[in-house]
Design a protein around this nucleic acid. Structure first.
Length: 907
RNA sequence: AGGCCCGUAGCUCAGUUGGUUAGAGCGCUACCUUGACACGGUAGAGGUCUGGGGUUCGAGUCCCCACGGGCCUACCA
């Protein structure tokens, strides 16, 4: 039967079908009681409001490659998907969505707002999950989790209560990061710093009862409205006599004490600091030490409060301008200088974060961090690349308490209740009926929710059923590894480690692989807001998901950021197309061969493939043996690479094998032998061809799941075999490994390449057949060439390849090339320009002479001989001898060229 | 301020414990529309590894300094 196969690979035609198939067949459903070693991985849950961006694409590609690879190697495999409720982001998105419909969320009220978010989540929130299915991630969708689902929430609450009972969670009033746009407190990690050119305003504070004044410098003049002191260093001779006196706060006309505190840096500015305890972390500490009043001059939304007097109601930045103007008017502004400082911005809204005084829930981190540091120190958790360990240690050792509460409506409500009478705190797993302290029934739950990252920190075990000892938990925890971006190492990898160890007594994963960032062509971090992001979905559509995956994998060297470009994607697409066409070649030719009575089943059936390679006259043909030896080497190399997260090497390996070895050499080599009906050679070639092709597809499958699934289904498969994804990753059969064919074919390839190079240099017409001579003293090479003369002749477009004895080899005429072991000569009757050849030879001569000189110097050096390992010396000597032979031949050849006026080849 | 990383062919990057004329893809040049593939084939040009110093028999690889670029952490007003 004739097969219809498109001339070029069209991924758009094929991908959706298999994506559906994998999900519908629930092909990747895990079974805790399945045999084999365990490979389990949980997805770093993407934001439920999000859509797939290029960073996910990379991360998910790496996860899926390792997952598929392990599954194919017989591991009991789980890839658990899910999404994160992403408190701030989601709330922002839905607030905006409602506002667009003219609905004010605050007027809507908490309960109805939450309903709206759930509704929105159900309708619009599944996008990333749908996209993950579309790109064929081999997840167990039956185990999909959501961080805010009722079951996850119960586990979050369990953790909160336990930590509270252990005294690790507490409530306190202190200075925190406040985002006036998101209207919530933020943890330190959610504040990003940006270097900005600002100013330092120098303000004169008159000393009460004197004529002098103190000059303070500030970057935020508007906060002076909340000043409650001025501080100097206790040993600063300039100001010593003023300590204990009062200063008059300009604009507010408030008398504030002049105090002495060690925290003041005498060198900076004037050595006098204004103290605003409610708006600066340092000042807050000073305020506590000196029992100063804390005057909050701002409101939640970044406006000046009633405490700011006449500035009340103004936006904080407008107030800054106005304060400066007023000071200027009053002559209280001494000067303005330029000052660069790192300014804190809200990670989500990019609003300038305002340090504010506030009562919040915190988590004590030191006790949690210590075992987490130790686990990495002891190597219980491997960090790849390991230079990230230092960053981890650095952060962990200087860790500060974590602000857990958020003033949001979307999230895990803090399980703390306050009695109205005494404000006693009751923290409980279940909604309490009465106050644990006084028994009051008049309780009110804390309105705040938990930081989203709190629930993400539990993800590796909460998703597996903890605190119950479920089958999933027993089998799949600890997970094998976590793959995530290095930019969120602290956000969740570190916290997962702390929480995991604390609650399960085990590390949550054995390794953390920190993948690279994907950057734009100009090397910048991609950003949606700047419009510099690449849309992976559109690119997948354009180039094919397989091409995208392969491209990313082939650039994913640990520790190196990826710069993606159209060129590179096109390269990967071309590779997919190459494979498609290799398959097309097989099937088109098979159609013909079948007309001679052969059957696909007999040539390519699974049990036939299993026995490859096949022999001809009792012997495996050289090139067939070579192909399987190369296959074995590739498998070994890929396994080793993937074992060490070296995705790029594994990708390169399969690329080289499929394109270079299989297509360029093997197929070309056996091409003419495939159509000789009934002959042993043809049958063996077909069988070996299919066996190697099938193995190569399986090697490629983790990288290009769609294409390989499609082609695999076109080969005969065992009854009941559903998918290549459930097939076996090839193992390098011992019988495939053989060094001799590798060496011999490499030599033949060298002979062919040389002959082709001569042709190219002589500018011979590509189709013009010419005679050539070959001479060698290497018997095995001679035999190999003899036995494969037809292939060599075809590869080099020769009318005839003559074997010539060494002494009869004519170097003086024709175009000659030599290596230490053989010489080849193209016999051609036209006059050839010797100029180019001489240039080439001279260049090569120089290179050789340099190499020889350096080796002779080294080998002549006594110290070298006495200290270098034997292996190196022997190797050097061998290479030297070879190079000397080459050089001799080269010089003779150069002499010949100089001798004759023109190079006319004989015969 | 402290810490980390990078600087290798025109471009993007590999280069495993220091060891034998430094690799790939893309681009470039020349030839080839050959019955799988022009998203292709063949051959080729092109780096002395940012600069300087050092350790070593031997350095792209280890150490120091400089220059250039990036990142992380950090309460200097």
């Amino acid at each position: 039967m004739a097969r219809e196969i498109a001339k070029a690979y069209e991924p758009q035609q094929i991908e959706p079908r298999w994506a559906d198939f994998w999900v519908k067949e629930a092909l990747f459903k895990a079974n805790p009681s399945a045999p084999g070693p365990v490979f389990s991985i949980v997805i770093p849950p993407p934001n439920v409001t999000g859509s797939l961006h290029i960073g996910h694409m990379l991360e998910h590609t790496e996860i899926d490659i390792l997952t598929r690879w392990h599954r194919m190697r017989g591991y009991n495999t789980l890839y658990l998907p899910g999404t994160d409720h992403a408190g701030i982001s989601t709330q922002r998105v839905v607030v905006k969505y409602l506002a667009n419909q003219g609905i004010n969320y605050q007027k809507l009220g908490r309960e109805r707002f939450e309903q709206e978010v759930w509704k929105w989540k159900e309708e619009a929130g599944g996008q990333i999950t749908r996209q993950m299915k579309g790109i064929g991630e081999s997840c167990d969708w039956s185990r999909e989790k959501f961080t805010l689902s009722p079951e996850m929430s119960r586990r979050v609450r369990e953790v909160f209560v336990r930590l509270y009972e252990e005294g690790l969670i507490y409530r306190e009033t202190r200075l925190v990061n406040w985002c006036p746009d998101c209207l919530t407190v933020l943890s330190d990690l959610e504040v990003v710093h940006e270097e900005r050119q600002g100013h330092l305003w120098h303000i004169k504070y008159p000393v009460v009862g004197g004529k002098e004044f103190l000059v303070v410098a500030t970057t935020r003049p508007e906060t002076m409205l909340g000043d409650t002191a001025v501080a100097v260093h206790p040993e600063d001779e300039r100001y010593k006599q003023l300590v204990g006196k009062k200063a008059l706060l300009p604009l507010m006309n408030r008398e504030i004490p002049i105090i002495a505190d060690e925290m003041v840096d005498r060198e900076f500015g004037t050595g006098v600091v204004k103290i605003t305890p409610a708006h600066d972390p340092n000042d807050f500490e000073v305020g506590k030490r000196h029992k100063l009043a804390e005057i909050d001059v701002m409101t939640d939304d970044g406006k000046m409060s009633a405490a700011a007097g006449s500035y009340a109601g103004m936006d904080r930045f407008a107030a800054r301008k106005r304060v400066v103007e007023e000071l200027q008017k009053q002559g209280a502004l001494e000067k303005i200088t330029d000052h660069a400082n790192a300014i804190g911005l809200c990670e989500r809204s990019k609003t300038v974060v305002e340090p504010r005084i506030s009562t919040q829930w915190f988590c004590k981190m030191k006790p949690l961090a210590e075992p987490a540091i130790a686990a990495v120190e002891r190597g219980e958790i491997l960090m790849v690349p390991d230079n990230r360990r230092e960053e981890y240690f650095n952060w962990m050792r200087n860790i500060r308490d974590w602000t857990l509460s958020r003033q949001l409506w979307w999230g895990h409500r803090i399980p703390a209740w306050y009695c109205k009478e005494h404000n006693h705190i009751t923290v409980a797993r279940d909604t309490p009926a009465k106050c644990a302290t006084c028994g009051s029934t008049n309780l009110e739950q804390d309105p705040d929710v938990l930081d989203t990252w709190f629930s993400s920190g539990l993800w590796p075990f909460s998703t597996l059923g903890w605190p119950e000892n479920t089958d999933d938990y027993k089998t799949y925890y600890p997970t094998t590894l976590l793959i995530t971006g290095y930019d969120i190492l602290f956000f969740w990898a570190a916290r997962m480690i702390m929480m995991g160890i604390h609650f399960t007594g085990q590390v949550p994963f054995r390794a953390v692989y920190l993948h690279s960032l994907v950057r734009t062509g100009s090397g910048e971090k991609m950003s949606k807001s700047k419009g510099t992001g690449l849309d992976p979905v559109a690119l997948n559509q354009q180039y094919g998901t397989d091409a995208m995956r392969f491209c990313l994998a082939s650039m994913a060297a640990p520790g190196t950021d990826i710069i993606l470009s159209d060129d590179k994607l096109a390269g990967a697409r071309n590779f997919a197309n190459k494979i498609w066409n290799a398959a097309r070649f097989l099937f088109v030719n098979l159609d013909k061969f079948e007309q001679t009575g052969a059957k696909l089943e007999e040539l390519a059936g699974p049990e036939v493939r299993a026995k490859a390679p096949y022999t001809v006259a009792g012997k495996i043909p050289l090139v067939d043996a070579w192909l399987f030896a190369r296959l074995a080497a590739t498998i070994e190399m890929m396994n080793d690479a993937l074992e060490n997260y070296r995705f790029h090497e594994a990708a390169q390996g399969v690329y080289q094998f499929f394109w270079g070895d299989f297509c360029d050499w093997y197929i070309e080599w056996v091409k003419p032998e495939l159509q000789s009906a009934g002959r042993e050679r043809a049958t063996a070639a077909w069988k070996n061809l299919f066996a190697a092709f099938d193995a190569a597809l399986r090697l490629l499958h983790p990288f290009m799941p769609f294409l390989t699934e499609e082609l695999w289904h076109q080969l005969p498969q065992a009854a009941g075999a559903k998918s290549i994804a459930l097939g076996q990753f090839p193992e390098g059969e011992p019988r495939w490994r053989s060094a001799e064919p590798l060496r011999e074919v490499a030599q033949i390839q060298e002979v062919v390449t040389m002959l082709r190079a001569i042709r190219a240099e002589m500018k011979l017409d590509a189709k013009k057949k010419v005679a050539a001579e070959f001479s060698t003293t290497d018997r095995s090479l001679e035999n190999a060439i003899q036995a494969n003369r037809e292939a060599v002749e075809r590869f080099a477009v020769l009318s005839e390849l003559r074997m010539v004895a060494k002494e009869k080899f004519d170097t003086t005429s024709g175009a000659v090339r030599s290596t230490a072991t053989f010489d080849v000569r193209v016999v051609y009757s036209e006059t050839v320009d010797a100029g180019a050849e001489k240039v080439r030879l001279k260049k090569e001569k120089e290179g050789l002479q340099k190499a020889i000189a350096s080796k002779e110097r080294q080998l002549g050096d006594e110290t070298f001989r006495s200290r270098a390992p034997e292996k190196i010396i022997k190797g050097l000597e061998a290479t030297l001898a070879q190079q000397k032979t080459e050089l001799e031949k080269l010089q003779r050849r150069l002499g010949d060229l100089d001798g004759g006026s023109s190079q006319a080849a004989g015969t």
